[in-house]
């Protein structure tokens, strides 16, 4: 049994496996299928200052080795989260991280300020990369100046682990990563979904109500791996890799590329117990290859 513990910035993690925001609800949806305390962390559904109804149905389309979604950050707002959801998840024996999104910088700041007061939430993941909202979201994540502005504003009011989630829909992701690192991010997660589109030729209509949406699943993995590799070479802060991880082998590849931790997203829909299995799979890999600690494989890519 290898040592699976790792550190992500200020976060102590029992293993590097987390679940990606928007794919794991608030964790409790999955408690029939697995032991939530077996994974390193849960990033709960994107939370905004005020309630959002999200986009109209249809919000998803299956594509080759992946899916498009256009949920549009449906959630009941941060106050509802504190009153009704926080009490049900605060005692989970894992890192419960809240994904925070907004339309304006002030929304991000106020939401982060409120969550900063919650004892059992050791960090937030700042979502500057949601492709499915008309205002804010990805708009903050596609320019260095806007990304830096929102991150430094949140940094001023938030004193726990600040993870910033990047969009792959940019020309140079390393530049954006450097900008958010300089603005005070403790760690960086990537990638959010890739902007995509699906069409029904029979009806000659788009498959999504929003026409375009975010692509996830194994189809995006090579792009995600490449971007994680680029970003880990550009910044000093730890990186959380995600994008199409379906099994332990995929997770290990992200760590070899330089990720300190990983997130499992779309795979949760296909096998709701997959994140726990990935923890076991990483352990088996370490034992088989004579590594005593999972930290030994971070960035261990041989070139």
């Amino acid at each position: 049994m290898a040592n699976l513990t790792t550190k992500l910035g200020r976060l102590q993690m029992k293993n590097p496996v987390m679940t990606a925001s928007g794919t794991f609800g608030y964790g409790t949806e999955y408690s029939d299928f697995m032991d939530l305390s077996r994974i390193g962390g849960i990033i709960v559904k994107g939370t905004t200052l005020r309630e959002r109804q999200g986009n109209q149905y249809p919000r998803m389309a299956e594509t080759a080795s992946g899916m498009l979604n256009a949920v549009g950050l449906q959630n009941k707002g941060v106050n509802y989260f504190i009153e009704h959801i926080y009490p049900t998840i605060k005692d989970l024996d894992t890192n419960v991280i809240v994904n925070v999104s907004g339309s304006e910088i002030d929304d991000y700041v106020k939401t982060a300020e409120i969550i900063n007061e919650l004892d059992k939430i050791p960090g937030i993941e700042l979502n500057i990369s949601c492709p499915n909202v008309k205002e804010g979201g990805m708009a903050f994540g596609v320019s260095c100046a806007a990304a830096a502005k929102v991150v430094s504003a949140v940094r001023k009011v938030y004193d726990k682990e600040l993870i910033v989630k990047l969009s792959p829909n940019v020309t140079d992701i390393a530049e954006i990563a450097k900008a958010v690192e300089d603005a005070g991010a403790d760690s960086i997660s990537l990638i959010n979904t890739l902007l995509g589109m699906a069409i029904n030729s029979k009806t000659r209509k788009p498959m999504l109500s929003t026409i375009t949406g975010g692509l996830s699943g194994p189809a995006v993995k090579p792009i995600a791996l490449r971007m994680v590799w680029q970003v880990t070479h550009a910044v000093k802060v730890p990186v959380v890799g995600l994008g199409g991880i379906m099994n332990a082998t995929d997770a290990i590849e992200f760590m070899l590329a330089g990720a300190t931790a990983i997130q499992v997203g779309t795979a949760n829909f296909i096998d709701p117990a997959i994140s726990e299995k990935i923890v076991e799979g990483i352990n088996d890999y370490l034992d088989t290859n004579n590594f005593s600690s999972v930290t030994e494989i971070i960035g261990a890519l041989e070139i």
């Binding site: 928007g22 249809p58 998803m60 979604n69 949920v71 709701p272």
Partner: peptide, 15 residues
């Protein structure tokens, strides 16, 4: 409705 997860996590099948 079309569904992603079936367990209330992905919020894709809303009405």
């Amino acid at each position: 409705n079309m569904m992603g997860c079936g367990i209330g996590a992905c919020l894709c099948c809303v009405t």
